[in-house]
């Protein structure tokens, strides 16, 4: 059976900072709020730890969308990490858009440890967008993704 005939199940990489968003995900879990299983959480010490290369690598390995979640501005555990992340990701997302990669495939949001509901909402919304966009065909490495797709 050809790969395309299978229903599209996206893969979403969510980089969550250890201090806020990862705890937010925990809270969503303990509050029994549902968010899509296709969201794969990767815990990072700070949103600022997300090297632009991580985002590229996630796409290479078959991600259809990448989201970065960190503490709200002003609440960073390391005081200013998320401000740097904000600039860096703005420029990166803009460059990806410029290269013709759909701008809806990347997102950054602030989710605190107390915002389990927000975590679930953000992930649900993002996943809906990715479902609407379909498979990522413009920015992935076939050699890394065929195994996943089959």
């Amino acid at each position: 059976m050809s790969v395309d005939k299978q229903p599209f199940k996206p893969l979403i990489a969510a980089f969550c900072c250890n201090w806020c968003s990862y705890a937010g995900a925990d809270l969503a879990g303990t509050s029994r709020l549902a968010y899509p299983a296709e969201v794969k959480i990767i815990r990072v010490p700070c949103s600022c730890r997300v090297n632009p290369l991580f985002v590229l690598r996630a796409f290479q390995r078959g991600a259809d969308g990448v989201i970065i979640a960190g503490c709200h501005p002003g609440d960073c555990h390391y005081t200013t990490g998320n401000y740097y992340a904000r600039r860096r990701m703005t420029l990166l997302f803009s460059m990806l858009d410029y290269l013709g990669i759909e701008k809806e495939r990347t997102k950054l949001d602030w989710i605190s440890a107390a915002e389990g509901v927000k975590f679930a909402t953000v992930m649900n919304d993002f996943s809906k967008e990715i479902h609407a966009l379909g498979r990522n065909t413009r920015f992935g490495d076939l050699r890394c993704t065929t195994a996943v797709a089959q």
């Binding site: 501005p73 200013t80 401000y83 740097y84 904000r86 600039r87 990701m89 703005t90 997302f93 803009s94 858009d97 701008k103 809806e104 990347t106 997102k107 950054l108």
Partner: peptide, 14 residues
């Protein structure tokens, strides 16, 4: 950085 920097969502709103 500055505290007033834009959120990356401005790229999506383009």
């Amino acid at each position: 950085f500055s505290f007033q920097d834009a959120h990356p969502d401005i790229i999506r709103k383009r």
